[in-house]
Simulated scan of single mutants.
Amino acid sequence: MFEKSFKHAPLGKALVAPDGRWIAVNKALCAMLGYEEQELLSVSLRVLTYPHDLHLDRAKYSALIAGHIGRYHTEKRHFHKSGAIIWTSLSISMVRNDYGSQDFCIYQFLDITEKKRREARLRLFFDHASHMLAVVDADGYVAQANAAWTKALGWSSNELAQRRLVDLLHPEDRDTNALPRRHMPRYLAKDGQYQQVEWLATVFQNGCFHYVAKELPRGA
């Protein structure tokens, strides 16, 4: 039963020895990486892993081998046979024998390459948008702010991340910060002056506020 479900699983699956050697791979994993089964078994998983990602999970893998955890999840890049890079969501669990020693690991690979491409496109749009885009967490701290914020206020994204957005408001404008749309508060710029912005949209999603604003001419 296990063998049948392993071979025909829609996710890429592999049985891997504790030292990293393939024991078995299924059809979905072969298709994902572009190899025939015997061909893939002859290629080291280490060779197929993007060099920068080789040690991303070193601490978790050590904890798995030691028996401190039963499974863990990570994301890694792997090389397709063609040389293309495949992003995978990787789940790793340990199977032990009756004496508690490591027997083998079960690796499950989900191809998330397209998801990563979409995220990269959204990141590019966010970073280079002409409007001021920001994500503010439930405590009011700036989780993300694009370059338009730095252009308008002079604060770097790292400097903004150390502040609550409301703390940059002009004292006279703090009561208006709760208004949902199209108000024009003033925010403290790095040069000590206040910069007025116009809020265009506020959306609350996944526990965060997503803001869209535009810079107004000083003195407007």
Results as ranks from 00 to 15, higher is better:
R96K: 11
M132A: 06
Y107C: 13
S62G: 14
D53I: 00
L124E: 02
L40R: 14
V136P: 15
I65S: 12
H68N: 09
A143T: 00
L48G: 06
A66T: 04
V142R: 03
I112D: 01
A138R: 15
V136R: 05
V95F: 09
H52F: 04
R118F: 12
L110E: 15
L122N: 08
D57T: 03
G70V: 03
E114K: 14
L56T: 04
I92D: 05
T49L: 15
L41I: 13
L56Y: 02
L110D: 15
R46V: 06
I69R: 07
I106D: 15
L133F: 06
S130R: 15
L48S: 09
I112G: 00
H128K: 10
V47Y: 10
L40I: 08
L56S: 10
L41V: 10
L64C: 11
S44G: 05
A143M: 00
Q102P: 04
R46S: 05
A59Q: 01
S89Y: 11
I85P: 01
A59W: 00
S91R: 13
S130H: 15
Q144Y: 10
I86F: 03
I92H: 11
K116S: 08
Q108R: 08
V135Q: 10
H52N: 12
V95L: 05
S89N: 14
R117C: 00
R58F: 04
I112A: 00
T49I: 13
G67R: 03
D139E: 12
P51H: 07
S89V: 11
W87Q: 14
I85D: 02
S91H: 14
M132T: 03
P51Q: 11
L45W: 14
I85W: 00
E119D: 15
G67V: 08
Q108D: 13
I65T: 13
I86M: 10
P51A: 12
L110A: 15
V43L: 12
A63C: 01
S89G: 13
D57A: 07
L40N: 11
L40V: 06
T49S: 11
G83M: 09
Y99M: 04
R123F: 06
Y99E: 04
L64N: 08
V43T: 07
A66C: 05
D57W: 02
D103V: 01
V47G: 03
A84N: 13
K60M: 06
V47K: 14
Y107W: 15
Y107A: 13
K76Q: 07
C105V: 01
D57G: 03
E114I: 12
I65C: 14
I69Y: 06
W87A: 13
L40T: 06
E114P: 14
S44L: 12
S93C: 08
S89M: 13
C105I: 01
Y107V: 09
A120P: 01
Y72H: 07
Q108M: 12
M94A: 10
D103H: 07
A143D: 02
M132E: 02
K76Y: 02
T49P: 08
Y72S: 08
L122R: 06
G140F: 03
